[in-house]
Amino acid sequence: MNATDRTPFGATGLMMSRLGIGGGSLASAAGEAGVKAVVDAAWDAGLRYFDTAAYYAGGESERRLGLALRDRPRDAYVLGTKTGRYLLPDGTDRFDYSAAGTEATIRTALARLHTDRLDLVFIHDVQPSLHGEAYEAQHAMALKGALPVLQRLKAAGVIGAVGVAMRDPWPILRLLKEAPFDAVMLAGGCTLLHQEACEALLPHCVATGTPVLFAAPFETGILATGAIPGARYRYKPAPQDLMARTAAIEAACARHGVTLAAAAMRFPLLCQAVKGVVVGHQAPGELARNLALMQAEIPAALWEELRATGLVSTLPR
């Protein structure tokens, strides 16, 4: 699989790179110069999807990405951001899915990104694990506040497509069943360690033609590094049960001549609804490694062994 291949992104009219540049980790690159170096390397390699969010680094991700892209031909790349979740200076989260908050976020994003349009805008992280008892109210506000604003801006040509982005599969599925969203960004539930999204969400996306971008295929570390001492899982030290399962998956990969990281990156793409994988790259060298992983040969026998041995519960289709 060629990471730079561009494939139709559902009915949105967009052409999506198989490998995207994730702005969450990109914001951690060494300042504006570091971000520009990664963006330049991605561009030279032929990658054309750049993803960010108002939340990442308190908005610095949008600002730095905008500076790195502002001299590029706007029609030559696809740009996505997210609205609704924000990082405050004290490190706490703020959520605002209101109409006024959404409108203000889009105005700010356009200015930070030095553009007059956004190809993709995702409503960000409307999930119970973040909202607790406020989840139902936030879910309702996303549909009654944020979504109508984004649909109006889409009709005006300011936004190309409107989607939802989060880690948990079932709140995404709920939103898709209740409103006409164009796309999904999923950051979990279809990795070598977790396959919950394969049960209902991804089959729904296949059936409805809803295109999916998959983020965080490495579970923020362990599926790239393997079960090494200090391996990270979802930003924290990996628990021992996942360390053991990762080691078993890595051993299976080795029997088929495949690295764990290559298998992790390619696993979500087994689903026909998943059009691209978005990965954070903090340096050009890291980008080069990920490009090589995307192009590695993965024998079908590996996937069958992982399923047959129960190391994965199901394979995405």
Rank of each mutant, 00 (worst) to 15 (best):
N2T: 11
R6W: 02
P8G: 00
P8Q: 05
M15Y: 13
R18L: 02
G22E: 05
S25F: 14
L26E: 04
A27T: 11
E32Q: 15
A37D: 15
A41S: 10
W43R: 12
W43P: 10
D44E: 14
G46A: 11
L47T: 01
F50P: 00
Y56H: 01
E62A: 08
E62W: 09
L65M: 14
G66S: 04
L69P: 01
P73Y: 08
D75Q: 14
L79P: 00
R94I: 13
A100Y: 02
T102D: 07
E103T: 13
R107E: 14
T108Q: 14
R112M: 07
H114Q: 12
R117T: 14
L118V: 00
L120I: 04
I123L: 04
I123G: 00
H124A: 05
D125H: 12
Q127G: 14
G132P: 04
A140W: 00
L143C: 03
L143I: 04
G145I: 05
R152D: 13
L153Y: 10
L153D: 03
G163F: 01
R167D: 07
R167E: 09
I172R: 00
L173E: 10
L173A: 12
K177R: 15
K177G: 15
F181M: 03
V184T: 04
G188K: 09
Q195V: 11
A200V: 13
L201M: 13
P203I: 05
V206K: 04
A207Y: 03
V212C: 05
V212M: 06
F214P: 01
F218P: 08
E219A: 14
L223Y: 06
T225I: 12
T225E: 15
A227E: 00
I228E: 06
P229C: 00
Y235D: 08
P239M: 10
P239F: 05
T246P: 07
A247G: 08
A248D: 14
E250I: 07
C253I: 02
A254G: 09
A261K: 04
A262Y: 01
A262T: 09
A263L: 05
A264N: 03
A264L: 08
F267D: 02
Q272E: 15
H281Q: 11
Q282T: 15
P284M: 02
P284T: 08
G285D: 15
G285V: 05
L291V: 02
Q295I: 09
A296H: 09
A301H: 01
L306K: 01
T309D: 09
L311R: 10
T314K: 14
R317D: 14
